[in-house]
Amino acid sequence: MTAQGKTHFFSQAWLVLVLAICFGGLLAGMQIVLGPTIEANKINETLERVPELVFGAAHAKELSETGMEIKPLSVGVEKAGKTVRYNVYETKSDGRLAGWVTKSAGQGYADKIEILIGFDPQVEKITGLFVLDQKETPGLGNKILEAGWRGQFLDKSTAKPLAPVKGQAKAGHEIDAITGATISSKAVTDIINTAVADLRQPLTDKAKGQ
């Protein structure tokens, strides 16, 4: 009975098994061929932005010929009993520390906003800002992508938390909020302020250590 059941099972299912093995082999082959490219894509997405966020778009091009070293770090910050992790890229030019770039995310108006922020070695000013991922309202909130608006953050001092204001920004720490998208503007500045507050101490310590 059992033997008969077994033959019956194989005569029914052999095609499924053969197909499963073939497809498994096919997928394994795919993974071997394409896996490294996909991994590289994931890393490059953030990495290729790093130079311009530290040195500025114009300067980054000249530097690309000379030596530049980017080292990814993971910084864990203890906050309210929980560890928050930041991916930080340490950028060195000719062996000297040139700046930091950190990936940071926070709640925007519609969904999570993910940005890259560039700092100078002492985390005293912002050297660049890039929006990696956002799903804000097209035409309003997604103006945070525009170079003009992001340009405001360049060379801002991190001594005082940044504050978005409606109308014309006057004081050094003020940022023009986008008309009709105050929440998105505030979300970006909040992400920056949190990142500065969390990372200033560990990064300055590390800069001194070198």
Binding site: E39, L47, A60, I70, L73, V75, G76, V77, E78, T83
Partner: peptide, 21 residues
């Protein structure tokens, strides 16, 4: 408090291979 961890060597190699934008 903060903790800094260095990434393994593969990540750094991948970083150096990156073409500059």
């Amino acid at each position: 408090a903060a903790r800094i961890e260095e990434h393994p060597a593969e990540a750094i190699i991948a970083a150096q291979k990156t073409t500059m934008p």
